[in-house]
Write a protein that binds this DNA or RNA. Sequence first.
DNA 1: TTACTATTAGTACCAAGTCATAACTATTAA
DNA 2: TTAATAGTTATGACTTGGTACTAATAGTAA
Lengths: 201, 201
Amino acid sequence: MVRDNMKRSKTERQRLLKEKIEETPFITDEQLADFFSVSIQTIRLDRMELSIPELRERIKYVATNHWNETVKALPLEEVIGEVIDLELDKRAISILDIHSDLVFSRNKIARGHHLFAQANSLAVAVINDELALTAKADIKFTRQVKEGERVIAKANVEGNEKGLTIVKVNSFVGSEKVFAGTFHMYRSNEEKGEDNHEISN
Amino acid sequence: MVRDNMKRSKTERQRLLKEKIEETPFITDEQLADFFSVSIQTIRLDRMELSIPELRERIKYVATNHWNETVKALPLEEVIGEVIDLELDKRAISILDIHSDLVFSRNKIARGHHLFAQANSLAVAVINDELALTAKADIKFTRQVKEGERVIAKANVEGNEKGLTIVKVNSFVGSEKVFAGTFHMYRSNEEKGEDNHEISN
DNA sequence: TTACTATTAGTACCAAGTCATAACTATTAA
DNA sequence: TTAATAGTTATGACTTGGTACTAATAGTAA
């Protein structure tokens, strides 16, 4: 007989535990114990049996993976823009130099999707969440951008609407606006506390 | 007087310390102390002064933030899908295979701007004019697309509005719609000659 | 001398674990 | 009924990689 209302079987709990940790790997045993209404020790036994490493190892794992990737992806340079300022869930700025690969060969005008890609990737980057996807976007190309110009995209998080985070991105060449977009971003778990790391230079 | 052979000034050490940590953020104070031949305490004082956080925080930082910048150096180039059917100023169809370069490494979901790029370039291609540019677009990502899937984009020219040509593009994986967009295309001279080149295979 | 900087040492404490051992609870078989 | 068993909880000692604080020492400058 099942002893408790909440508590399913051990196997069931372990299944859910695995899921939970995959979803939110930055969770301590204590939080997990709370969540499943069992003791910390039980959680630890479960982790043993499932060979799920401890929190720090999990964080490290995530970190090293992406570290390797960024190292690999480092010679990306200006492809979708270089982030020069980022405060999560608030604002972000990136620069994209329009070099010859990004323009139509005939008229040297930048192909629209590069401006979109810059803005869209900035909208993704500004979201303080593990999963951020564009659900919807409303965009306008207000001026043609030519080879050699430098596009500065500025993203601002404008709040929420129906579970989606609204990010407005405006891109400029000098003082002229060349692109404006409103991105409706899907995110997995709403925001993440006060731990906003800020980079700025 | 410089007290030691190896040891440069404090400021010099701190400069190098900063570099070292940026290079290899997964380094403990102990290893750093070894490396600079000073005590652990000195390293800690240095970190304080430079406000460099402790190892775990650094790891966490990399883990939570850096993945966003997985802005990969994919040569977005011309590979925005293969046009398989085109009747100018009427309709067009293209295929895009979602290979590993087009997805977020984390979750294998296709990055939005690729779907946009496919649709947008198709909208450009379908216009029977020497100059075709996207002035405005209204787009919706209706389903996530995963690695390995094949996206078929279908563009239809819907007529004119305020001098802009309206092109609707719908993209599918199998029978499921994954993307919908209305593109307002600017064109230089609205020409509609009967000389429509048609390709089809 | 006195003051100050840079460095080193040592202590107490913390978070988030590890490992090992023991004990309690509920069900199940002899 | 008793004993065995699985599952869970408790307890304590130890580990890493730190923080925070205090104190001591060496060398240099006013």
